[in-house]
Computed example of a mutant assay.
Amino acid sequence: MNEDRNFLNDPKSLSKLPDDAFQTELLKGVSRTFALTIPQLPQPLYGPVANAYLLCRIVDTIEDEVSLTPEQKSYFCSDFIDVVKTGLNSEPFAAELAPLLSDKTLPAEHTLIHVMPRVIEITHSLDPEQIDALAECVATMAEGMSAFQSQNLQHGLPTLADLDKYCYYVAGCVGEMLAKLFCHYSPTIAEHKDELLRLSVSFGQGLQMTNILKDIWDDAERGVCWLPQDIFRETGFDLKKQTPDANDPNYKKGLTHLIGIAHGHLRNALRYTQLLPAHETGLRNFCLWALGMAVLTLKKIKRHLDFNRSEQVKISRKSVKATIFATRLTVRSNRLLELLFDMAGRELKTPEWQYTAPNLLAQLNH
Rank of each mutant, 00 (worst) to 15 (best):
E195G: 12
C77R: 09
S310I: 00
A94V: 01
P277V: 02
M177C: 13
E136H: 15
T327S: 14
T61V: 11
A161W: 06
I38N: 06
F76C: 01
H192Q: 15
Y355T: 15
Q229S: 06
G264S: 11
T243I: 00
D20Q: 15
P42E: 08
V84Q: 07
P44L: 03
H110D: 10
T210F: 08
K299P: 10
V224I: 10
V30F: 06
I120N: 11
L163A: 07
I212N: 01
D164E: 14
A220C: 05
Y251Q: 05
V115L: 09
T159Y: 04
V66G: 12
T188F: 12
Q312L: 01
F93R: 07
A139V: 11
G87C: 08
L153G: 02
R57D: 01
T69V: 00
A322K: 15
S333W: 00
L197R: 13
A142N: 09
L305C: 00
T123L: 10
Q363E: 13
T330W: 02
A179T: 12
G156V: 02
V84A: 09
E96Y: 04
V320F: 10
E143P: 01
V138T: 09
F148W: 01
M293Q: 14
E143W: 03
E71S: 08
F307P: 00
G156I: 01
T323H: 06
A362L: 07
P228D: 09
T210H: 10
D248H: 03
G254A: 03
D238R: 01
D127P: 01
E311L: 06
K302T: 04
V174R: 10
F307L: 04
A50G: 08
A179M: 04
D219N: 02
A278H: 12
Q205R: 05
Y185S: 14
V224N: 03
S150I: 07
F307H: 00
H366M: 13
V49M: 01
T140G: 12
G87T: 14
E221R: 04
A171V: 04
H110Q: 11
D230L: 12
T281M: 06
K193Y: 13
F203L: 13
T235S: 03
D19P: 08
V119K: 00
T86Q: 12
R303A: 11
A21W: 06
N308M: 02
K240C: 07
A133I: 00
A357H: 11
Q208K: 04
A246R: 09
C173I: 05
P358F: 07
Q354N: 15
L275N: 14
V119Q: 05
L340E: 08
S150W: 05
I81G: 05
L336H: 12
R303G: 14
D60F: 10
